[in-house]
Amino acid sequence: MKRFWPAFFIFSVFVTGGYWSAHSEVRPTYYFYNTETNINNFATLKMGFDIYLVNHGGYLLQPFDLRENFEKVIHEKKGDVYLLSSWHLKELQQKKVPLEIALVGTSKGNTTQRKVLSAKKDIVNVAMLKNTVVAAAGSEEYVHSILKQILGKGQEALLKDIKILIVPKDIDAVMAVGFGMATAAISAESGLDKLAMMSPNQFKELHSLGFSEKDYLLIAATLKKPDQQETQLLEVLRKMSETDAGVANLKMLGIDGWRAVQ
């Protein structure tokens, strides 16, 4: 009899755990991966979203730290709604992945942003970045692509002579210039606004050497025209900005709301 209860306990845990994990797999899910940050606050993000979503459809958020795994889920058509960067979406669309934009993230009323290459004022042009370090947040592929875009065809050859230092977030990149760990930084324009708030003197020392094209902030996409379930998922996302708890979760993603694309 003594052996029965521990065995029963293990059995119960196994069965219920198996049931819940199997159950959780079929719950509609938001799949998230962002090429523009290395912050990796996934546990926090997942917990924040899942708590919010308990009372808003019971959906789940599944963040990814590896691009391959996120794309695997898309290829397996497991997802219902995918949250990703505009750059990543375009990359996938070029590979004929039929993702379509459903919602775009907003921040202070804007749906788009530019990336800016900034340096101290003694660096008067991009040619002076040869053999220097440029700090940026995001995946290496993304940063390389944005830098190439900013440099333009005329200065593209410089790419091989620039060392890119990948840092966790925009504010680290812009601060790295001020504190001498990098000669220049690539950040969103909002990254410079943050620096102005944190360290006005450092901000005054910087100037812009170039800009990327304007691009959407975070995107919510689906693999096809949204069906009923996907429409519900998107509606929950869209309404997140109506509550404090929802906004707090969105702020972790660097946005404060969602807007439908016309």
Binding site: I39, N41, A43, P168, D170, K194, A248, K251, L253, G254
Partner: peptide, 13 residues
């Protein structure tokens, strides 16, 4: 600063 939440690596509840 709520706008700084996207720069936090970990939030403990």
């Amino acid at each position: 600063n709520q706008d700084a939440l996207d720069s936090v690596n970990k939030i403990v509840g």
